[in-house]
Design a protein around this nucleic acid. Structure first.
Length: 158
DNA sequence: GCCAACGTTGGC
DNA sequence: GCCAACGTTGGC
């Protein structure tokens, strides 16, 4: 399958691109997604080797702040079975897991983060899923053309 | 803090 | 299956 591209949202006060870079092996399980549309992408669509735009939401300057790579395709989110975990789901059973994660590994932080505001003003990004009214999906697709524009604007690692 | 836009839940 | 109530997201 051809490489595809995605945008993952995270609140930087909870987990930022720097947290990913500094994590063990610069890798994390993208856990806690509890939305069925996003779940379907994590479980069925997102493949090892795909590109991820790391997006900071609910902060002073929302925007794409860097790039990561999917290093493991979908598998059950372990936090759903942990009664002490914030994202515990008592209705999910190990033999029929409801929620999935992928692993992502840090690639680079943009020298120039591409803000939401900039995306709205950039020709070629008009149809981005992110910019559609009321799109709150925390995991969403990015087209190759959009990926190219944003990674070019973001620049090399800082 | 406000509020629009959804997604989820649960009674019926 | 409908739909009102409620909760969450996330920009501003």
């Amino acid at each position: 399958m051809a490489k595809r591209y995605w945008l993952f949202k995270s609140e930087p006060s909870v987990y930022s691109i720097d947290d990913l870079r500094d994590d063990k092996d610069s890798t994390t399980h993208w856990d806690g997604v509890r939305n069925y549309t996003a779940r379907n992408l994590l479980r069925d669509e997102i493949q090892k080797g795909d590109g991820v735009l790391f997006y900071h939401s609910s902060c002073a300057e929302p925007g794409a702040v860097g790039v990561a790579t999917v290093t493991r395709a979908g598998y059950p989110d372990p936090t759903q079975f942990d009664p002490k975990a914030k994202y515990h789901d008592p209705k999910s059973k190990p033999d029929n897991p409801r929620w999935f994660v992928v692993d992502v590994t840090f690639d680079k932080a943009f020298k120039n983060p591409v803000t939401l505001k900039a995306m709205r003003e950039t020709p070629g990004l008009e149809d981005m899923a992110l910019l559609r009214r009321g799109n709150r999906l925390s995991v969403q697709p990015v087209t190759p053309a959009e990926w190219k524009i944003i990674t070019k604007q973001g620049g090399r690692a800082r």
